[in-house]
Simulated scan of single mutants.
Amino acid sequence: MAINTVLFDLDGTLIDSLPLIRRTYEKVFEEMNIPWGDAQVMKHIGLPLVDIAKTFAGEARHPEFFKLYQHHYALEHDELTKPFPGTLEMLETLKSRGFRLGIVTSKTRQVALRSIGFLGIDRYMEVTVAVEDVTRHKPQPDPVLKALELMQAPVETAAYMGDSPFDILAAKRAGVTSIGVTWGMSERDELLRREPDRILQQWEDLIPILEAYSS
């Protein structure tokens, strides 16, 4: 069956926010006197912030971690948030060809809407599923399935793409076509270990991939 619904992760997929995320974590870890381990921390991107806060700050201090993160993230958001090259052009092309588009992210709705509104991505999206919209989060399938429920789109006609193994797992568990992108957090080999249906190295390759499912 042809794919006509395309869902996207946000950070590291549509928007180049990883420098902002790393800088924010560094500040929070420093202020809370938590030992910093870059590789360990950054591998958690894609999970809900509250879960990351509990992992590194503990149950008792996680509200402080969450509040500090939101504070520092907001301060530098506009300066350090930008779309990846070709993102807006790709979304315009997909929309003009009749694809239905949505975002599935582990960010809070407020922060996600700020980012996509600031960058002009919101006008292309039919739905945005954020952390508050489901009880179970990526790598569980619930956020992807929630987006499809809101769009009334069958799984057979949908694809979900992201830069994290959590995205690939969520897509596969939801039964949609899974597409990994190589310009975000994870290396190509790390994505391949989760056996996505496709790997995308540049936006220009997306249309041919989607068209292949229609032939």
Rank of each mutant, 00 (worst) to 15 (best):
T105G: 01
L94I: 01
R114D: 15
Y69V: 02
Y73W: 00
R100F: 00
V50T: 15
A60M: 07
L94H: 06
M90H: 04
L68E: 14
R61T: 03
V111L: 15
V50Y: 15
T105Q: 03
K82M: 12
L75K: 14
I103Q: 00
D78A: 10
E64R: 11
F65K: 12
F65H: 04
L49C: 07
K67S: 14
Q110D: 14
P63Y: 01
I121L: 05
F56A: 00
T93N: 13
S96C: 03
I116C: 06
S115K: 12
F118E: 05
I52A: 04
L101Y: 04
L119M: 04
A60S: 13
T93D: 13
L119I: 01
K82S: 15
V111W: 13
K95M: 08
V50A: 09
D78N: 14
G120D: 08
A112C: 00
T105I: 03
R97N: 10
H71F: 10
R97M: 04
G102M: 00
H72G: 01
L94T: 01
S96T: 06
H71G: 09
E64V: 08
H71M: 06
R97T: 01
I103E: 01
A112I: 00
E64S: 09
H72S: 06
L75V: 05
L49H: 10
A60N: 10
F84N: 13
T81V: 09
L49Q: 09
L88M: 13
L94G: 01
Y73A: 02
A60T: 13
F66W: 11
K82R: 15
H71A: 10
L101I: 01
Q70T: 13
E79V: 04
E79S: 14
E64H: 08
T93G: 08
G102N: 08
F65W: 05
E92R: 10
P83Y: 05
T81Y: 12
R114Y: 12
F65C: 01
R61C: 02
L75W: 12
R114T: 07
T81H: 15
G102D: 07
Q70F: 06
L88A: 09
K95G: 07
I103V: 10
L68G: 07
Q110N: 12
K67N: 15
L119A: 02
Q70I: 03
Y69M: 03
L113E: 13
Y73S: 04
K54E: 11
A60P: 13
A112Q: 06
Q110H: 15
L119D: 06
G117S: 12
H72F: 09
Y69A: 02
I103W: 07
F118S: 15
E89Y: 08
D78G: 03
K54N: 14
L49R: 02
F56M: 03
S106F: 02
K95N: 08
F84G: 11
F66G: 11
Y69F: 14
L113C: 14
Q70M: 12
A74G: 11
E89T: 13
V111R: 15
A53S: 07
G58D: 03
L91G: 05
Q70P: 07
F65V: 01
R97G: 13
R97W: 02
G58N: 02
A74E: 08
D78Y: 10
E92W: 07
G98D: 03
F56P: 05
L113N: 13
E64C: 11
V104Q: 04
I121P: 11
P63F: 05
V111C: 08
G86R: 08
H62M: 15
L68D: 15
T81W: 09
Q70C: 07
D51C: 10
T87Q: 12
